[in-house]
Amino acid sequence: MRLKQHTLSIFFGAIFVLALIGQSFAGLSVFNDEQVAHGASTIGWLDFVTSSDFVVDVAENWQSEYLQFFLFILATIWLVQRGSPESKKPGEEGVGSDAEQLVGAHARPDSPKWAKVGGFRTWLYSNSLLLTMGAIFVLSWLVQLLAGTTVYNADQALHGQPPFTVAEYLVNADFWNRTLQNWQSEFLAVGSMVAFSIVLRQRGSSESKPVGAPHDATAVEG
């Protein structure tokens, strides 16, 4: 029974690992095809998954996903969308009172310890989700930048061009082309989810309003 209570996170954890493994083998095949086309030697799987070519592709996806989460969490504190279960109800904008958030003197016996103690620890815990998403975004974005610089310089060397420093690559069109093509898709996905959930339904999903709920019902779970 305990396992059943965690099937959602287990499911997504499992398909994440499978997708990452699949990406590594597909990417290795593409990389080695390019190596052969350029008259260079092929490499093994372990060498590929520890290479900048693989790391930059993974980091690109991670940083855009966590930027999406960071901005959505931040935006939903202050912005609302009438009719969407992804939004708070109009008039409920803001961080909420201590009583609503069950912190400090309003904490329950089973509330997390840092919700009760007050001061900096309660503030930190109150913003821990946003801070964690932001930190993962920044770190993965930096990894993308560093690995991307290495990959770009390898291509530069292949064409007899001088290498770029990290700072030079940061303002290079190649870096921002790779970055923005991921960002725009994430922003589209979140915006579509918010908008579609106003009028569309999925029976049994917590991301949808009840099938019979009116279109203008907001912050209603199925």
Rank of each mutant, 00 (worst) to 15 (best):
L3T: 14
G83A: 05
I15N: 08
S64A: 14
A40E: 14
G134H: 01
Q101I: 07
S87Q: 04
M1S: 13
V166Y: 08
V220I: 15
W141R: 09
Q144S: 14
K89F: 07
A157D: 08
P90L: 06
G191W: 06
V30A: 14
L131A: 13
A75H: 01
A147W: 02
N153K: 06
L180M: 15
L3Y: 12
A107V: 05
P112Y: 02
M1H: 09
H6M: 13
H6N: 13
S128D: 01
F164P: 01
L188M: 13
V95N: 01
F120K: 07
A157L: 14
M1G: 12
T132Y: 03
F48N: 05
Y125H: 09
A167P: 02
E168M: 10
N172P: 04
E34Y: 12
S84T: 11
A189Y: 09
S206G: 08
V55C: 08
Q184R: 12
N32R: 06
Q161D: 13
A115V: 01
Q23A: 15
D53N: 12
V199P: 02
A219G: 05
R178H: 10
Q161F: 12
T7Y: 09
A26P: 01
V143C: 10
T122V: 04
I21C: 12
G119E: 03
I43E: 05
F54Q: 02
G212S: 13
H38A: 15
L129Q: 10
K209F: 03
L67K: 00
R108V: 08
T76H: 00
E221C: 09
A99H: 01
S197Q: 02
V58N: 03
D216I: 13
V30G: 06
L67Q: 01
G119R: 03
V194W: 03
G119M: 05
Q81H: 12
V36W: 04
T149P: 04
R201A: 08
F196H: 06
G44H: 06
L180F: 12
D33G: 15
R178D: 11
A40C: 10
W45N: 08
P214S: 12
K113E: 12
R178L: 13
Y125E: 04
V220M: 10
G22Q: 09
A154R: 11
D33S: 15
T7M: 15
Q156C: 12
T165G: 13
L130F: 02
D47H: 09
A147I: 09
L170Q: 11
S185M: 14
R201C: 07
A99T: 01
Q161C: 11
G148A: 12
I21F: 09
D98E: 11
F187Y: 06
G91F: 06
G94W: 02
T122C: 02
A154D: 11
V220N: 03
F196I: 15
S87Y: 03
V58T: 08
A40I: 12
L142Y: 06
W141M: 13
F164T: 07
I136A: 03
